[in-house]
């Protein structure tokens, strides 16, 4: 059953960190260390900003006629960029909201998975395995059908995508939490027991501080994986994001080349820096742990 529980990636071989000169201060509390607090504040502020900004008009149309003789009309291409950015923004926002849901949901799933009650642990383990090995696309469409069949619940298409992403990646984050907690050496647990620490002290002072550096890169990987899965909400559910934009423009102008290549480029512009930032984070954590 646990065959699919590890991440498909092989960990990067850590390279020599250019900033190895930085002072190593593990004795300081994390909230007193500027190199931890400043990125944290920046990320949180960026998150709030991204979630609250209004995406503006979501009606995609081109007021520009492309030259039919050219295979790729660059003027037409650049004319489409602002609308593509709207689609990208909606995509990023849905991913972030879905991932927030996944982080919270994954915590409870991990708790259930670690439970000592068999009747709780086994169903949760099966549920995680089931959701992890079935396609997100089918889950999204299933969720939409379920919402439509239940008169009490009503979700917009974006909300359906957010909930679907949240549930799917919640199972992934729960596995990340579990791996992070299991990676805390056994001696730490035994020492906490030997010192007669209360469960609260044991978790908040011993286990979680040591698990966080292991969990963070895995969570980042999940976020990027979620971002790569989110565009399917366009054609599957009708979320006005990247693919929806491209399909719309294609139907309008019968020019498929520019919008589709444009969303490919736009997506890479967002996902490659995110992957790069994650790798930096991994290197930093690797450096601190040594």
């Amino acid at each position: 059953m646990s065959g699919t529980t590890t991440e498909p990636e092989v960990p990067e071989v850590p390279e020599a960190d250019a900033e190895a000169k930085l002072a190593y201060e593990p004795h300081k509390k994390w909230y007193r260390r500027p190199e931890v607090v400043i990125p944290l504040v920046v990320v949180l502020a960026g998150y709030v900003l991204l979630i609250t900004v209004d995406p503006g008009s979501q009606r995609y149309r081109s007021a520009f006629t492309a030259d039919p003789d050219q295979r790729v009309d660059w003027a037409y291409w650049f004319h489409l960029v602002p609308q593509m950015l709207t689609g990208l923004y909606i995509l990023v926002r849905a991913t972030l909201l879905g991932f927030t849901l996944a982080v919270v949901l994954g915590f409870f799933l991990a708790l259930g998975r670690r439970s000592t009650h068999r009747w709780l642990q086994l169903p949760v383990a099966f549920l995680i395995e089931f959701i992890r090995s079935t396609p997100l696309l089918v889950q999204l469409v299933f969720l939409q059908a379920l919402v439509r069949a239940t008169p009490v619940i009503s979700l917009s298409v974006v909300e359906t995508l957010v909930v679907g992403l949240g549930i799917h990646y919640g199972t992934y984050t729960s596995e990340s939490y579990r791996a992070g907690i299991n990676s805390v050496p056994k001696g730490q647990w035994e020492a906490a027991t030997a010192l007669n620490l209360s469960p609260v002290t044991k978790w908040t002072q011993i286990i979680i501080p040591q698990a966080v550096p292991n969990v963070l890169p895995a969570l980042g990987n999940n976020l990027i994986a979620g971002f790569k899965d989110a565009p399917m909400g366009g054609p599957a559910l009708g979320v006005p994001c990247l693919l929806f934009f491209a399909n719309w423009i294609r139907a309008d102008d019968f020019r498929p080349v520019e919008p589709f290549l444009l969303i490919g480029v736009g997506f890479l512009m967002a996902s490659l820096p995110a992957a790069w930032a994650l790798r930096r984070l991994e290197e930093r954590i690797e450096y601190e742990r040594e």
């Binding site: 989110a230 565009p231 491209a246 290549l261």
Partner: peptide
Amino acid sequence: GISSVILLFIMAI
């Protein structure tokens, strides 16, 4: 870096 669904659409269309 690319999303498989976007790559699929680029490839097919």
